[in-house]
Design a binder for these strands. Structure first.
Length: 895
RNA sequence: GCGGACGUGGCGAAAUGGUAGACGCAAGGGACUUAAAAUCCCUUAGGGGAAACCCUGUGCGGGUUCGAGUCCCGCCGUCCGCACCA
């Protein structure tokens, strides 16, 4: 081929990408005004924490969102696609302590670096709406909302148990307690009671649960995880009378929550949590019990501590009466496996039908009585030894319940106990319990949003007047000592009481950073308004987020908090809807092979050379030549050193190659494996597309302006491929099936290459026009079809590879930007084939094809099928038992 | 323990109950080149056959159906979430 024109030179990604990014920037085409007359579409990716550099996970996440944004824009929507920074958090303080940089400086440096990286990706973001949660202009509104929530009864201050690190002088999350010790200090963690601020998310337990059913465009998995997290269970609250004389004077009863009232005749003991008031009361006169409670208190609440903890208890000496038999006395224990903050902090133990209770009685010799007999078992011989039975069955050993099923017994028990009353109240009542806890938001940390309240010696807790907001963080702080620098600040902390003017101190705790990220998506709808957290009109117009994209790791916390926060904001009038995210997509991770040296040290991909001969791949360390073991792909992490820097990829291959790779091969919800050979292959495809467009552009130039009336079969085939691909890709993008889209685009580009090559070769064979492939060899209808095809092709990959697409679009002679071109329309006629080739199955196995007219009736098809050699052979002269014909789909002959 | 998802070539994968393996990677062969790179073409689930073609195949065992990777039942395996939750 003679391809010497300037267009067919190699595509220079580095040069072109910078150039087109400048053009988009200068023309401001991605800024979306709040006033418009289009349908709205809000696409959002979870905003990043400014850790310093973006990683490949960000590249994948933001590429997906950008494809959706660009396609929706082309389809005529007003698209809101903003970006911001989840900028408060502990790493900034750690950096300050380690490197003597102020958290603010560290954070803003990181933001600047990461913003430049995001820009180099060519994302179609509306940067005019950029927000950082550490900006007083943002957190001022968060403080105002805190005060609104406080007034609306959505915020509470109360004591709560926390993990306290006595050396670092801070509260630790459960994840930060390792084998009972602080992860940084190594100090033994204490259980402390601290007064904390809580958002009353449990007020919405039922609502948050019910509304999950309305979130049809959420992954089933996430909905289920939230459902389990909320953990609704229906049961019975039973009041056990305590035997006078055995119990402390003030205590005459114990409330117990149970979901299995049907097993109450199998009860062997009652138990309360170590921090239950009854335990404390009983311990006053019982030093052994007091020692046991003290021991429990020192146990961590971490997962490791719970897993290894043995079931232990201590008899209080108190006796409780069975609700149906005052003479039946049950011992009351304090047990380490009872949680104070679920139900009433007290249980009744039915060992035969609860494994945990069984372990407990076996240890303390209390015995067990089975009361539910499994189907098919003889009640007379049914015994429980080491394994509790928690299935269905028939009630036994249960007096008036005998013979009932489990649900019947539950109901009967509830009915009878509800009617019984003691001291004017029913002995039992039906109750719904939730696993969900209120959201404790107090953090003993500097780099967070200050909680806007003042503690006055006389007036107690006083909200900061709204006119005094924001309560800004003081900047003159040091991190040379552990603990919260706000707490030891000489001036910031000490204020006058806004109410009485007397001596007072500021709240020095800051808010959990999950608060910051619980409403940023609403702030994006109008980030400029200074007088209120939201402009109600803009918020209602843009919300909900139509497509939210992020990692599965936020399935519970961030997404549940945001759902609560939106409801709270609705209650205080900031927004008019309950559910913030109409569509949610959770993308998979980016993984990479791992490389391990003989001494066990990890090697990074950049340090390793891979050689392959046949199917065998071998890795060696570039510096020393020593062999390196290739391990399976794992999540990119610093510790395994299998990370790849997006900057390196973008400068070596270009953003388009990185974007294309992120969308290809793996379905977006699954992990994608990044590899050097993979990235090179995508870079090759970019060049192939560029060559194809260059060749096609020459042919397109010769095409008539007006659409020809008739198309040759070959030209028609090109047009059909064009429109069928267009229809498929459009449909698959809507479903976020990016990997399938890319396959269709690949296939279409191969078809086009082949058509262009074939025609050139044919004409060459005939000796016409000299060298093959010359543009003038193409008939007008074919040139027109190719021009249409190549334009559609460029538009189809433009959301994924926007820079290459602009370059191609310009090469095709367009003066406008492909980023602003309307999405092409499918011509439905071209999707319909006039003849169809049906697969012919014999006994369910494909044996032949038959080509018939699209409208052919069943009789015609059957005749054509029975005439086929393969069918005749299979029937061997007999007539078929049955012929199933699904018009336009398939034929199945049953021999 | 409870809940859920998944299991398809050497690999990533595709497939409204209707032609299993599209598309890509890797591999092998070839073209171009003095050579290399780049590029292009061909082959590539397994087995049989000179070929036409035939047989076997979506973790295992059953079932429904004219027809099952897909639906149902039971196993096995992998991954994920939750977990002293009464």
């Amino acid at each position: 081929m003679n391809s010497k024109s300037a267009l067919s030179d190699r595509y220079n990604a580095a040069e072109a990408e910078a150039r087109w990014q400048r053009v988009w920037d200068e023309r401001g085409i991605f800024a979306t005004p709040n006033t418009h007359d289009k349908r709205k579409y809000y696409v959002l990716e979870m905003f990043p924490y400014p850790s310093g550099r973006i990683h490949m996970g960000h590249v994948r996440n933001y590429t997906m969102g950008d494809v959706v944004a660009r396609v929706k824009r082309a389809m005529g929507f007003a698209v809101l696609h903003p970006m911001g920074w989840d900028a408060f958090g502990l790493p900034a303080e750690n950096a300050a302590a380690e490197r003597k940089i102020h958290p603010k400086a560290w954070t803003y440096d990181n933001i600047a670096a990461m913003k430049a990286q995001l820009k180099s990706m060519g994302l179609s973001l509306d940067w005019s709406r950029e927000i950082a949660t550490c900006d007083p202009a943002y957190y001022k509104h968060q403080q105002a909302m805190f005060l609104d929530f406080l007034q609306a009864g959505l915020v509470e201050r109360r004591k709560s148990k926390v993990n306290w690190d006595p050396v670092d002088q801070t509260v630790l999350a459960n994840e930060q307690v390792i084998e009972g010790r602080g992860w940084r200090s190594g100090a033994l963690v204490e259980q402390r009671e601290l007064t904390q601020w809580f958002f009353k998310i449990t007020d919405y337990s039922q609502e948050l649960l019910d509304a999950l059913d309305t979130l049809e465009r959420w992954p089933e998995k996430v909905r289920l995880m939230q459902k389990n997290w909320i953990g609704r269970s229906e049961g019975l609250l039973v009041r056990f009378a305590l035997e006078p004389g055995t119990a402390p004077a003030a205590a005459d009863e114990l409330e117990v929550f149970t979901t299995r009232p049907d097993t109450l005749f199998g009860a062997k003991f009652l138990a309360v949590a170590p921090d239950h008031p009854l335990a404390a009361a009983a311990a006053k006169a019982n030093s052994k019990l007091a020692a046991f409670i003290e021991e429990c208190r020192h146990r961590g609440t971490s997962q490791a501590a719970i897993d290894t903890a043995e079931k232990m208890g201590c008899d209080t000496g108190i006796k409780a009466r069975h609700p149906f038999d005052p003479s039946w006395q049950l011992p009351v224990f304090v047990a380490n496996f009872i949680l104070m903050d679920y139900g009433t902090g007290a249980i009744f133990g039915c060992p035969a039908h609860d494994q945990r209770d069984l372990d407990f009685v076996n240890k303390y010799g209390l015995g067990n009585v089975p009361v539910v007999c499994p189907p098919g078992q003889d009640p007379k011989t049914f015994v429980i030894t080491d394994t509790a039975y928690d299935g269905d069955g028939t009630l036994i050993n249960s007096r008036f319940l005998d013979g009932m099923t489990v649900p019947q017994a539950k109901e009967e028990f509830a009915r009878r106990l509800e009617k019984e009353s003691r001291s004017g109240r029913p002995v039992a009542q039906r109750q719904v319990n939730f696993r969900l806890r209120d959201w404790g938001i107090s953090r003993q940390r500097y780099w967070g949003c200050p909680i806007p309240v003042i503690h006055c010696e006389k007036c107690g807790v006083v909200p900061v007047p709204k006119s005094d907001l924001p309560v800004t963080l003081p900047e003159d702080v040091s991190f040379d000592r552990p603990g919260n620098p706000l707490d030891r600040h000489p001036t910031w902390k000490h204020v006058r009481c806004p109410r009485c003017g007397g001596k007072a101190t500021r709240e020095t705790d800051t808010m959990d950073t999950f608060v910051d990220s619980s409403w940023y998506f609403i702030r994006f709808t109008d980030p400029w308004i200074e007088t209120a957290p939201t402009d109600r009109k803009a918020a209602d117009a843009w919300m909900p987020v139509d497509q939210y994209i992020g990692g599965i790791e936020h399935a519970i916390l961030h997404l549940l908090y945001s759902r609560f926060f939106t409801r709270a904001m609705k209650k205080t009038g900031q927004v008019g809807l309950d559910e913030p995210f109409a569509g949610l997509f959770t993308q998979g991770m980016v993984v990479h092979e791992t490389y391990r040296r003989a001494d066990g040290e990890w090697a990074s991909p950049a340090e390793v050379r891979i050689e392959s001969s046949g199917d065998i791949r071998r890795a060696t360390l570039i510096s020393t030549g020593e062999p390196v073991e290739i391990g399976p792909p794992e999540k990119m992490s610093k510790s395994k050193r299998n990370t790849v820097d997006p900057d390196d990829i973008i400068s070596d291959y270009g953003a388009d190659v990185a974007r294309w790779f992120m969308l290809s091969d793996s379905p977006p919800e699954r992990d994608v494996e990044w590899s050097e050979r993979g990235v090179r292959a995508r870079a090759g495809f970019v060049q192939r597309l560029w060559r194809l467009v260059s060749e096609a552009a020459e042919i397109a130039k010769t095409a008539p302006a007006a659409r020809p009336n008739d198309f040759s079969p070959r030209a028609l085939a090109v047009r059909k491929a064009t429109h069928q691909t267009l229809a498929k890709v459009t449909d698959d993008i809507e479903k976020l099936h990016f990997n399938v889209c890319l396959a269709a685009i690949h296939e279409f580009s191969s078809i086009l290459s082949e058509v262009i090559g074939d025609i050139g070769a044919d004409d060459g064979d005939r000796g016409k026009g000299g060298a093959s492939g010359e543009a003038e060899n193409y008939a007008a209808d074919m040139a027109w079809a190719i021009r249409e095809a190549i334009n559609v092709l460029v538009q189809l990959f433009s959301p994924m590879m926007p820079h290459l697409a602009e370059e191609c679009w310009a090469a095709l002679g367009h003066k406008s930007l492909v980023a602003q071109a309307p999405w092409p329309h499918v011509e439905p006629d071209l999707l319909i084939e006039h003849t169809v080739t049906l697969p012919v199955q014999i006994n369910g196995r494909k044996r032949a094809d038959v080509t018939v007219a699209r409208e052919a009736g069943k009789a015609d098809i059957e005749a054509a099928v029975l005439a086929l050699d393969a069918v005749k052979r299979a029937l061997d002269g007999k007539s078929p038992k049955k012929v199933i014909i699904v018009p336009q789909r398939i034929v199945n002959v049953v021999a």
